[in-house]
Each structure stands twice: as structure tokens, then as C-alpha cells.
Design a protein around this nucleic acid. Structure first.
Lengths: 337, 337
DNA sequence: AGGAGAAGTCGAACCGGTTCGAGCAAGATT
DNA sequence: AATCTTGCTCGAACCGGTTCGACTTCTCCT
């Protein structure tokens, strides 16, 4: 059941059917009605591959997401969901591409084989060869996150530096003097992940500014690592009274570690960080945190990408977001020991 | 840069290049080498749309996932991740399709426009028109979950009845007599979601068998609803000493409600349910639960789908999984009041 | 020497759309 | 009445692959 069949039954040529559907040339009302009737009767839908081949657009965008295999964080889930939803609103499908072990291969699939019109990249590194590569090729893409040289690119990012700093100031304002920083896993930090680096930076600078006594840690993306990390923190400096975390997946473990050590949150210990809102609310007490607006970021990334696809020569645009800290229940003034 | 260009530079015909790549007809070593060299030089990759158009296979599978818009659970994330990964191993891409508001439209996109070779469906209902529709069409698909009439279909499912029953028996064995059941949201139950129905069934029957005094609740997929639900439970029967939940997203809220009410887990109150393992470990105390093997289910679904794609006439196959309860720290014997 | 068979290659047709140039009829303009 | 638009439609070419039938060349067999 193809366009030829429709044309035959409607008694017109294939091109007329095409024009009736696309509206790119006028078609008489009579003909249009007849064609539409046949189409409805047969439930015809034009073949996506043929269309893509002919006009060079797949109406699909690629979502390149983090190394699979291990742990996804809730934030990433929220990104994926919002990207898919926003793309659907523009009539785009979303193709998932794990930039896993051999990221080159799946990258080649997406671009080399022309499966997608554009791409959205997640988990950006400060020096990101994927971003550079795409920029060189002039391939339409938008990054969720920004590299060390963000001026020329298309991206929507979070001001991790400012957010981590805000967390520090929040704790310092409450009187905390000895504070720990719980980062993403060491391997990600070493690989140059943006959030890990900029967050660490913001934390360190703000802490210096406020004259705090700090220690920084890397922590695996799971509860067990969080628990272990907290043990280490209290072992290294039992006088620690607060922490800032970027590590959503470890949050539950951090809380458990605190409970294990007999520290009550927020009475004896304050916890804050940068975490997607709905995950901050699953822990008790609810986490006072800079809420990552994952839904908004995904949506904006799609908006930018679609704009870029529609106007290939448009100048680069980006959004840098810095949501305020949501006061919940996990931080409080430091109490005399 | 297309196959014609490669052919020209290698001094052969287009068909020879095609055969050299596919191996479907013999090509002399000399020619093959020459072609390969040109391909490597130019970094040529065959256009996916053209290939799909010519041989009728897109090498893409569709993943039809739950209504977007609101909340995804961690389990769903795990499914998505494992499906993508497993598919990549078979050289398939994954196209996400939100079966959201107008599920028909995105369904039409996938099937009608031939964007995918097969589909994997999530969040199955007992009476699921998507499943029926695909079965009628003979379109290759595999469900993650099973309908009320599972005999003839391809699926990989969880024995929710048995799992919920196992939870009940676990609590009953510990001496609990007054137990609550926390289900997925009411709208999902009403819509006929499999897990909600079969889980409720298993719970109810097992409870009757053990002569327990039970109440059942529906609960929204978020922490706040969980907290409210727990309040309701204790309000309706303050003597309740345990609960079984299918609602992963509400888990944090349930715990908070218990803490709020001054009930200590597991001393005063036992919590168990059916939850993906790594999410069961984020709460404190860690949840004793039937661990949903999301990763395995996703992988098996892909295995089945690929088998079905490779052997169009193969008889239906399925896997019904019933993982054992993992004893962690959230349940204990009932203590005298 | 002659024929069978296999290996290797080519041209052409095809998949199912889109788009361009041209043609035709009816109405408007001079 | 001749010419110019304008509206509508058609045929053909094209997108970039795959595949079929046919042709050539070479080897092997009798």
C-alpha cells in the first residue's frame, strides 16, 4: 500500500497525491477530497524511509546518553522523558544512542548513516571530543551541559559553579565551619565531566572565600558507595557538620551513613546539594537543594535543536540556568556540641 | 558521498560495491581490497534510509513506554537502559515512543510509517488494545508484562500475583496480622494495569488464606502521595503493623510517613513489596523486597523480539519470572505493643 | 577441442516517496 | 481574436541503496 496505489485508486498521478498531502502546490478541492477519501479508506501512511531518502530529513533526533551498563540517575531519566515529550510536540522521534564502550560506533551509526537530523548530547565533559567533532562537521546538535569553551556552541547548561557556591554559602550562613563535598565518581571527575569539575570549583572557591575547613570526596553512583563515603568523611574529620553533594544516586546512602553514625539531620548535621527536585523529596528529611530543572532543560534543548534545524545559519544560542536553592528540611544552624 | 561515488573511485559498478559490503555474492580479493581502501579513505557509511527503503528493514525497534508528562519510576528507567543496551548488541537502534495522550498518533508513526521493524511495549494492561492491535496485524512485538490472555503472545513478565503473595506470607510468617497494601495510582488500577491488578489479587488471596486483616490503598507515584497514604493507613487502622507496596516512587514518602508517626522500621512496623533492587537499597533501612529484575527483563524482551524478527513464523514464546524475596532490613517480627 | 560450471562483474529495475519542468484548460487582459 | 495569466495536473528524474538476470572469463572434465 504505497503512494502509487493511492494514486491509482483516486485516478490521479503519484505527484498529485504527494502535493495534496504536502500542500506544496495547489490541488483542486475535488481531487483533494477524492484522495483523502481513498487514504482514509485504506489507512495509508507514507513510508518514513522513502520520505527521508527523498527529502533528506528523517524527522528523528538522536539522544546520546551516558555510558550504559551501570547506573542511571533519576536526573537522567527526567532528561530523557522531557526530551522525548518535547520532541513529540515538534513531530520528531527520538533515537536513543548509548555512548557507551565504543561510543564511536554508535556515533557513526547516528551521523554517518544519517539516521537523525540532529542530536542532543548528555553528560558533557569540559574537553568533549564529541562536541568538537560535531562542531567541526557542522552537524546540528545541542549539548545538555557546556564545555570549557562554550562561547561558540549550542547548549543548555546549569551553572554548577554558582549552585555549588550557593550551597556553601547557605551552610556558612548557618554557621557551619567544617564541610565536606561529595562529588560524582572519581572516574567521571578524571574523565572531565563538567558538573563534577565546575561543581568542585564552585565549592572550593566559595569555601575559601568563607574561610571554611573543607574536604572533598568522590563517590560511586549508588547507595552503598554513599554510605561508605560518609563513613570516610566522619572518620577523616569527626567534627564535620555539613556536606554538599552533587551525587543524587548516593544520597540515600549518605543519609543512611549519617543515621548509622548517630547523627541526626538536620540537628547534628546538615545536608544539601544539587539534585533534581522530585528526588530531593524522596529522602527524609527532605533535601534542601538547588533543584536541577531537568524537565525544563530537556525541553529547552529540544527547542534549540529544532530552531537550529529550521534555520541552519542561525547564530549559536544557549541557556545558562541557575535555579535558587529550595529550602526544605535537611539543613539547620550549627548547634553547640 | 554515496555508493556511486565509491564505485566510481574504485573503478567498479555500484552493485559490486554493494556485494563487497554485504558479502551476498563473491567478490574477488583484489576488488574487495580496492573498494575497502576507498571506503576507509572517505569514511563512507551507507545511508540508513536508503538501505531501509531497499530491503524493508530499518534495524530499529520501537520502545513504547508509559504516558509521559508526569512521573517515571526508577524501574522504568532500568528497563529503558537495558533495552537500549541489549538492542545495541544486536545492532538495533531504539526509537522511543511515548504512548502518551494520543497514543494512536505515535503508534501510527511507528507502524504505519514503518519506522521500526518491531516493538517492545511497557506498562501492559490486562485488556490492552495495543497488544491486541499488534497481534491482529501480526506485527512483531514483545510485551514487558502480560495481558489477561497471555497464551498466544510474546512477552516477558513478572509473576506479580506470586510476588505479592510471597510478601504477604513473609509478613504473616513474622506474625503480622493487620497489613496494608499500597498499590499504584488509582487511575492506573482503573485503566487495568497488569501489575496493579495481579499484585492486588495475589495480595488479597494470600491474605485471605492466612486470615489476615487487610486494607488496600492506591497511591500516587510520588513521595508526597506516599506520605499521605501512610497517614491514611494509620488513621484507618492504627493497629496496622506492616505493609506491602508495589509503588516504588512512593516508597520514600511511606518511610517518611512512618517516621512522622513515630513508628520505627522494622521494630514497630514492617515494610516490604515489589521494587527494583537498586532502589530498594536507597532507603533506610534497606527494603526487604521481591527485586524486580528490570535489567534481565529488558534484555530478554530484546532477545525474544530479535528471535521473532529473524524467524517470522516461530511459535510464541515467553518468560514468566518470579524472583525470590531479598531479605534486607525493613521487616521483622511483630512485637508486643 | 568443446561443453559444463563456477567466479566475478555489470546494467537495469526496484523500493516509495519528492520535486521540477512542462502541458493544458479556463479566465483575464489588450 | 490573440496573448497572458493562473490553477491544476502529469510524467520523469532523483534520493541511495539492494537484487536479479545476464554476460564474460577462467578452470575443469571427458
Amino acid at each position: 500500500m504505497n503512494i502509487g496505489e493511492i494514486a491509482r485508486r483516486a485516478g490521479v498521478s503519484r505527484s498529485t497525491v504527494s502535493y495534496a498531502l504536502s500542500g506544496k502546490r495547489p490541488v483542486s478541492d475535488d481531487t483533494r477530497r477524492k484522495i483523502q477519501q481513498v487514504i482514509d479508506e485504506l489507512g495509508y501512511r507514507p513510508n518514513a524511509s522513502a520520505r527521508a531518502l527523498a527529502n533528506g530529513r528523517t524527522n528523528t533526533i538522536g539522544l546520546v546518553f551516558p555510558p550504559a551498563g551501570n547506573h542511571y540517575t533519576g536526573m537522567q531519566l527526567d532528561f530523557i522523558g522531557s526530551v522525548v515529550e518535547a520532541a513529540a510536540a515538534y513531530d520528531y522521534d527520538v533515537l536513543l544512542s548509548p555512548s557507551g564502550v565504543d561510543s564511536d560506533r554508535s556515533f557513526q551509526r547516528l551521523l554517518g548513516e544519517r539516521r537523525v537530523d540532529g542530536a542532543i548530547l548528555m553528560e558533557i565533559r569540559l574537553e568533549d571530543d564529541r562536541v568538537d567533532h560535531l562542531a567541526e562537521l557542522g552537524f546540528p546538535s545541542v549539548a545538555i551541559g557546556r564545555t570549557a569553551h562554550p562561547e561558540s556552541g549550542w547548549w543548555v547548561g546549569l551553572d554548577h559553579t554558582a549552585l555549588a557556591a550557593a550551597c556553601v554559602h547557605h551552610l556558612a550562613d548557618l554557621g557551619h565551619r567544617r564541610v565536606a563535598f561529595v562529588n560524582r565518581p572519581e572516574q567521571l571527575l578524571r574523565a572531565g565531566y563538567e558538573s563534577a569539575h565546575r561543581g568542585l570549583d564552585g565549592f572550593t572557591k566559595a569555601a575559601a572565600e568563607r574561610g571554611l575547613n573543607v574536604r572533598t570526596y568522590c563517590c560511586g553512583d549508588d547507595a552503598a558507595s554513599g554510605e561508605a563515603c560518609l563513613e570516610q568523611i566522619l572518620h577523616d574529620d569527626p567534627a564535620t557538620t555539613g556536606l554538599v553533594t552533587l551525587n543524587e544516586a548516593a544520597l540515600g546512602g549518605l543519609y543512611r551513613g549519617l543515621a548509622q553514625a548517630g547523627r541526626h539531620v538536620p540537628r547534628d548535621f546538615s545536608v544539601t546539594g544539587v539534585v533534581a527536585g522530585r528526588w530531593a523529596e524522596t529522602v527524609t528529611p527532605q533535601l534542601t537543594a538547588a533543584d536541577v530543572p531537568a524537565e525544563e532543560m530537556g525541553r529547552r534543548a529540544v527547542d534549540l535543536l529544532v530552531e537550529r534545524l529550521d534555520h541552519p545559519d542561525a547564530p549559536p544560542r544557549h541557556h545558562l540556568l541557575a535555579p535558587p536553592i529550595s529550602l526544605r528540611a535537611s539543613t539547620g544552624p550549627v548547634t553547640a556540641p
